[in-house]
Design a protein around this nucleic acid. Structure first.
Length: 305
DNA sequence: TTGCCAGGTCTGCCCTATAA
DNA sequence: TTATAGGGCAGACCTGGCAA
């Protein structure tokens, strides 16, 4: 397993120029994707936005890369474009920006004192909606997640920063022993997906949930579930949309700067939320050997069942 | 009303354990 | 060696409570 660094502080590494400059820990270095400083730099981490699994498929490793949810700062043009592309996909391509309502980190109340937060709540506020799906939706964004052996990435970046003959090519070399952890990303999202989706369904008709992920996470989810039984409700009253963002163009055709992300038409699922939850829960098979064989009693004796 | 603080949520970083 | 699974930790950010 290996990865390459795809973006460093909003700059793709697979172009030779301009040569990327290493950034040391400091505050107020702007993030390319939101109207706020890069918080990785401010806390002393390396400003890696995304990596490529085995040098190929993009895996986002910064929470702000796909679409930052931070409140009380103006949405950047980049965020607006991402959110509008989602709105067009779920509410219809004719929807206008002024009819897309957004709430960031919206509280979602569960029993007891606990409160979950929806990354976004998105509302179609147009007077004559041109779609059959929900007009209000919880929107969760998870472009990627963690990698294993992050220390290897840190050491790789530090060696690049120390190098006298520093180049983008050196920064984007394969880092071995590092893998993407789709399992962890899904593990952490699963609880929120179940609870926030449930809240959306209970809130009333016209509410749905949209889950935006990256290519690797989309493929991981579908490989773990039997979605063949799910009805395609794209043109009907879907309550769950699973969408995937991918790179816009082949790497060679890209200019310097950030990697463009677009929704992947080949990776999109519109279906019934409850049916999808059943499919998720239905991955287990009977396992009689788990409940038989050698056991130990609390007194220290071995018992075979 | 304002400012401070504690606590909660979310998520990336780093690590270990285990099995194939 | 690689893939998978999971735990501890830290930082950013937000909310609610409380005192001034």
């Amino acid at each position: 397993m290996s990865v390459t660094i795809a973006e460093y502080l909003g700059k793709r590494t697979d172009v030779n120029t301009p040569v990327i400059t290493p950034i040391r820990k400091q505050r107020n270095i702007p993030c390319h994707f939101m109207n706020a400083p890069c918080d990785k730099i401010s806390r002393g981490d390396k400003p890696i936005c995304s990596v490529r699994k085995n040098g190929k498929t993009l895996w986002i490793v910064c929470r702000h890369r796909l679409c930052a949810t931070t409140k009380n700062i103006p949405l950047s043009d980049y965020q607006k474009n991402i959110l509008l592309s989602v709105a067009k996909k779920v509410f219809g391509s004719s929807i206008q920006p002024e009819n897309v309502l957004i709430k960031r980190e919206a509280p979602m109340h569960v029993s007891g004192r606990s409160t979950y937060k929806a990354d976004f709540v998105m509302v179609d506020n147009s007077s004559n909606p041109s779609h059959m799906g929900p007009r209000k939706a919880v929107l969760e964004m998870q472009g990627g997640g963690e990698t294993s052996a992050t220390g290897n990435i840190t050491r790789h970046v530090e060696a690049w920063a120390r190098s006298r003959n520093r180049s983008n090519q050196q920064l984007s070399r394969l880092i071995s022993g590092v893998g993407t952890i789709e399992t962890n990303a899904w593990r952490r999202q699963q609880e929120q997906f179940l609870i926030k989706g449930r809240i959306a369904m209970q809130t009333g008709s016209g509410c749905g949930i949209i889950f935006c992920v990256g290519t690797l996470l989309y493929d991981y989810l579908l490989s773990r579930t039997n979605t063949a039984s799910l009805r395609d409700l794209r043109q009907h009253n879907w309550t769950l949309a699973l969408l995937s963002f991918k790179e816009k163009a082949p790497i060679s055709a890209q200019a310097a700067g950030p990697i463009d992300l677009v929704l992947d038409d080949t990776r999109a699922l519109f279906t019934d939320y409850q049916a999808f939850v059943r499919v998720i829960a239905d991955v287990g098979n009977p396992s009689p050997d788990t409940f038989s064989g050698a056991f130990e009693t609390l007194a220290g004796r071995t018992v075979n069942l």
